[in-house]
Amino acid sequence: MNFTLSTLIQQIINGLSLGSVYALIAVGYSLVYSILLFSNFAHGGFLVVGGYACYFLLTQWGFNTAVSMAGALAASGLTAVLTERLAYKPIRERTSITLYLLIASMGVNIVIENLFVITVGGRIRALPQSTFPTGVFELGGGVTVSASDILSLVVAAIFLVLLQLFLTRTRWGLAIRAAACDLRTAGLMGVNVTFLIGLVFFVAGLLAAVGGIFLSVRYSLYPQLGSITTKAFIAAVIGGLGSLPGAVLGSLILGLAEMLTAGFVSSQMRDLVVYSLLVLILLVRPAGFFGRTASEKI
């Protein structure tokens, strides 16, 4: 393998690995958007809940990795459902303007972040090194891939496939797809819309927790961890908000674009180059790659 080729491969691996984390988060965004047509910025908060739940289950209560992860998933899922019930449902019932939901979600995100700042403090934590594999594999030619990369890619893939199966093979999945087409009509056809929305938030919360755990393992855990969801949100928009395959594609594109620009153009100019490119993409395709309509986007 020659020198530049191995560098290119390494940068592509770096990009895919970053993109897979974006994807887990972006899918959660898109799922909620597809039903309620608003961008749930509290998603970053759910992610932080998942990260901290896993951390405390592991370190304070001494549970094993699997139990801690399951607990974290449940905690995030319930937080998401609770958020929907307490913050979004009252608004939904009073107005059909989704802008209010969007603003409420920003508020919820700030509330969750600050709850953690006050209760557990702002210091940076890391999940114990021994709980997740930390090895590094040499692929030859100096190209390396870390165990946590492979693990996060695999887990992201598993969860995305499970989600796809749930949506296409189950009755509730069918109901969710129907609601994504038209929430009101789905309600008229006998779907329990309140339960359905709760379910969607629960699933989005689960995905956020998986993202939160992987971000904590690979990077670190702190109350502002949720801010990385801005990138995932952008990825979801590029892919076409409301489309799950779009969210995955958008995330991989964003991850690759960031890494390749930093690697081969300029790391100082990375964000400038990458985000100008994204603006261009949206100029050409306003609804993203798989978006339905441009008019309803916020």
Binding site: T7, L215, R218, S220, E258, L260, G263, S267, Q268
Partner: peptide, 20 residues
Amino acid sequence: DEGFRGEDVDFRSQLTNMKN
């Protein structure tokens, strides 16, 4: 001579260049 922005958490693309 590689740069990043304060809130970044992933430096592998810069580090790859530094390695090379």
